[in-house]
């Protein structure tokens, strides 16, 4: 058993040497792209890179899902060929990139409020209700603010257990950005941050931690990514948007919200509080960070190729994995920006 494994390793090593010596000899050398960053779009990116690598034998793209903050750090330090971030990049961060940074929104997602209230399977939350819950003002499930939006639903007289993310995350950044846009009080404190000083709540690590806490604790509410909630079959609250309509999270309602984004030159646009009647209120783009100039032309071509694949074919994967496909005008804008990279 042990011997055969050893032999396998030796064979693999020999094969690798053989292959790499072949690759060196011919003109079709393997181009390796190294990327790192946000964990939120990681499943989608991995799928793209795998599919593209399978179709183009000479291109290999590795993506490490290490978090937005680390993605930006590695991108500035030039230890990667491209980065990825849910929180885009701040102007100071962009200024620190010598080769120039071009941010490319490649996909988008929604954040949902998942809950576990015994006997309640259809929960509607008004803007006042959910900002109140996360400010610690609304403490009971039968608070008048919640009851008003849920006629006919029997809400229990129990405490609301708020679950928030314990680790710094792009998801929290986007969620607090939305709450700050809705509520001035929230904007003052806790404010927008990857890990703010929440007024309430127990904290759990990662989407999976929040989901586990909500699942196992009756009376809980927490925020997680739409794709994750969908894959785990978690209930999602129907939220009131800026126009006063109650909207459930779906691909259509998410895209309606994304359409509101006005992209400036640098392609960093937020939709903290979309106005359209059919728009789901909490959505965000997520960005790939590319340098404006690449010294290695092979790498440049490979990167352009794989990102173009993501923008065209890859958008079909987005919906099945629970992401929001980019609206067509946005795809055109990103393609134009991609063409400017040299």
């Amino acid at each position: 058993m042990r011997f055969s494994r050893w032999a396998g390793a030796a064979a693999t090593a020999a094969l690798t040497i053989l292959l790499s010596s072949c690759g060196g000899g011919t003109s079709t050398a393997i181009v390796k792209l190294q990327g790192a960053g946000a964990s939120f779009p990681a499943p989608l990116y991995s799928k793209w890179f795998k599919a593209y690598g399978a179709a183009h034998q000479n291109i290999q793209v590795d993506y490490q899902s290490v978090g937005s903050g680390n993605g930006v750090k590695s991108f500035i330090d030039k230890t990667v060929d491209f980065g990825a971030s849910d929180a885009a990049m701040s102007p100071e961060e962009i200024a620190r990139v010598d080769a120039g940074a071009q941010l490319l929104p490649l996909t988008a997602g929604a954040i949902v409020l998942t809950y576990n209230v015994p006997g309640v399977s259809d929960l509607k939350l008004s803007r006042k209700a959910y900002t109140g819950i996360f400010l610690g003002k609304v403490k009971k499930w039968n608070d008048p603010v919640i009851v008003a939006a849920n006629p006919g639903v029997k809400l229990p007289d129990s405490d609301i257990n708020v679950v928030v993310r314990a680790d710094g995350s792009g998801t929290t950044f986007v969620f607090t950005k939305h709450l700050s846009a809705v509520s001035e009080e929230f904007a003052k404190s806790p404010g927008v941050n990857k890990m703010p000083n929440w007024a309430v709540g127990t904290k759990s690590k990662g989407n999976e931690g929040v989901t586990a806490s909500v699942k196992t604790t009756p009376g809980s509410i927490g925020y997680i990514e739409y794709g994750y909630a969908k894959s785990q079959n978690m209930p999602m609250a129907v939220l009131e948007n800026k126009s006063g309509a109650f909207v459930a999270a779906s691909t259509a309602s998410g895209q309606a919200a994304l359409a509101a984004a006005e992209f400036p030159e640098n392609l960093i646009a937020w939709v903290p509080d979309p106005e359209a009647k059919e728009a789901y209120p909490i959505v965000t783009y997520t960005w790939v960070l590319a340098y404006k100039t690449y010294a290695d032309k092979n790498k440049l071509e490979a990167l352009k190729g794989v990102l173009t694949y993501g923008l065209t074919e890859g958008q079909k994967d987005a919906e099945t994995l629970g992401y929001l496909p980019l609206p067509a005008p946005v795809v055109d804008k990103v393609k134009a920006a991609l063409a400017t990279i040299k």
Binding site: V66, G67, N70, A166, D167, G168, M195, K203
Partner: peptide
């Protein structure tokens, strides 16, 4: 009551720290 520990704080905050 929920609480926090130093090691947990470090683990949770480091990856996205400025």
């Amino acid at each position: 009551s929920p609480a926090n520990t130093l090691a947990a704080l470090l683990a949770n905050t480091f990856p996205e720290a400025r």
